[in-house]
């Protein structure tokens, strides 16, 4: 796939010289970003993923007003919706109705719709900020390793190997499992969210680090870096003004692909009971509560589908973004 030419009509294909007919117009240069955007615009699947991602972000950001209009507070009990003899929701399909869009939970009758919407906020917040942490660590170490080479590169390379050989999930579970109730001026789930962001980000940086290192290795040998060096630029200047801007595209692409991984990571930790503490709603936590009520498909299905749709949308968009910036990587 190459950048689309602005040639209108089929006549151009028959008579190549007809391209020159428009030569009176000023020829516009296209930046890499513009070319990528043009490619992305033609990729329907990626755009679909992107639209879902935007919708999800909107839902997460406006979760409170959405819940206020369409649902009930996520922590509110609705015992009147529960059949007290079986502790299961009254009515068909887990109590789905105009008032309770996705039904209610068994036993306490909390509104599932509200809990899914509120869970989107936690999921996306952790997914985004954890990715930010890993991008920060990965980019810094990757650029340093790739740019300076030698023993620095060896050291950071080994560090990445060690991280990749770690049973990360076990480590993350162990760390998340011993988070104290109060530290750094935070407490309760505020602290847990902050710690999860740090833990998840800290364990997923090597993938970004490797890519950044590889890209920096090739950028280092380019002419414009030589030019900057010969003009007497210092390392800091070359790193931040010459190398880093050229890394933005791959970083953006792989950050987009890392977000769904991190969302899955958070869901797994909450599912295992070492993530966010109940009663704060999270998708992983809802699934782990649903284990005991496997006969209620709606209870299992909605949080699972929420995770699936979110992760799929980010993956589709990220894949499209990668193809747009680097068609060869397809």
């Amino acid at each position: 796939m190459t950048a689309p030419l602005d040639v209108s009509g089929s006549a151009a294909e028959a008579r190549p010289e007809s391209v020159l007919a428009g030569a009176g117009k000023a020829i516009q240069g296209r930046s890499l970003t513009r070319i990528a955007w043009m490619r992305l615009r033609r990729d329907k699947v990626a755009l679909g993923g992107g639209i879902v991602v935007v919708l999800l972000i909107l839902v997460a950001v406006f979760s409170s007003p959405i819940i206020a209009v369409l649902g009930h507070p996520p922590l509110e009990f609705h015992q009147d919706q529960i059949d007290q003899s079986t502790l299961l929701p009254k009515g068909v399909f887990g109590g789905m109705s105009g008032e309770y869009l996705l039904g209610v939970e068994p036993v306490n009758g909390r509104d599932i719709f509200s809990r899914i919407v509120a869970g989107a906020w936690v999921s996306l917040l952790i997914g985004f900020l954890a990715t930010l942490v890993s991008v920060a660590i990965g980019t810094t170490l990757g650029v340093i390793a790739g740019y300076f080479g030698g023993w620095v590169d060896q050291l950071i390379g080994r560090l990445m190997d060690v991280f990749l050989a770690f049973p990360l999930l076990i480590f993350a579970i162990a760390l998340a499992g011993v988070i104290p109730d109060k530290a750094f001026g935070l407490e309760g789930n505020g602290l847990r969210i902050a710690m999860l962001i740090f833990i998840i980000g800290f364990f997923s940086w090597p993938s970004i680090g490797r890519i950044v290192r590889g890209q920096t290795l090739s950028l280092r040998e380019r002419e414009f870096v030589d030019a900057a060096k010969s003009l007497g630029a210092r390392h800091g200047y070359i790193l931040f003004r010459e190398v880093l801007p050229n890394l933005l595209a791959p970083i953006l692409v792989y950050a987009t692909l890392l977000i769904p991984t991190n969302i899955l990571f958070e869901a797994a930790l909450s599912f295992l009971g070492v993530g966010i503490n109940p009663p704060t709603p999270t998708w992983g936590g809802m699934l782990s509560e649903a284990v005991r009520f496997y006969t209620l498909p709606h209870f299992v299905l909605f949080p699972g589908l929420a995770i699936f749709i979110t992760v799929l949308a980010f993956n589709l968009f990220g894949d499209g973004l990668r193809d747009a910036f680097d068609p060869r990587a397809h």
Partner: peptide, 14 residues
């Protein structure tokens, strides 16, 4: 693509 987007604890339960 759907497969890599599904958490194992969800597919497992289903």
């Amino acid at each position: 693509l759907a497969g890599v987007s599904l958490p194992i604890f969800f597919t497992g339960m289903i």
